[in-house]
């Protein structure tokens, strides 16, 4: 199983970003990076790559899906595993995320106490 050392949280909602960060920092030893937009996220990806990107879908300027496309174009095979964390979880939407290469989908609202577990499970299943 691929070890997770660092996670990039991309969400335009400050509160949610904060909760996710608190959850992961409180429950794991992972290094957490944050980005409040696609643009910010892309600049993050120019530096040291995280192991997992926790990605919101509905963001102004650039959706999570757009970001995934750009990141793939930027990084190719080095693209970290991407988990969408979103409230848009209709069956057709989930299928779309998967088809874009998402490692998993975590539904909002999420339980902060179970977030690390969900991330690990998603990645385990994706392998």
């Amino acid at each position: 199983m691929r070890k997770i050392n660092s996670v990039l949280i991309v969400d335009d909602d400050d509160n949610i970003r904060l909760i996710a960060q608190m959850s992961l920092e409180g429950l794991t030893t992972w290094r957490i990076q944050e980005a409040r937009s696609g643009k910010e996220a892309l600049s993050c990806l120019e530096g040291e790559l995280p192991d997992v990107i926790l990605l919101d879908v509905m963001m102004p300027d650039m959706t999570g899906m757009d970001l995934l496309g750009h990141a793939r174009a930027l990084l190719g095979d080095n693209l970290p595993l991407v988990i969408f964390m979103t409230a848009k979880v209709q069956t057709s939407e989930i299928e779309k995320y998967r088809s874009l290469g998402a490692a998993g989908v975590i539904m909002k609202p999420f339980d902060p106490m179970k977030l690390p577990e969900q991330i690990e499970e998603a990645i385990a299943h994706f392998s």
Partner: peptide, 9 residues
């Protein structure tokens, strides 16, 4: 999400 998250934390 924020409410639930905060409460959960």
């Amino acid at each position: 999400t924020s409410i639930r998250g905060s409460l959960g934390l």
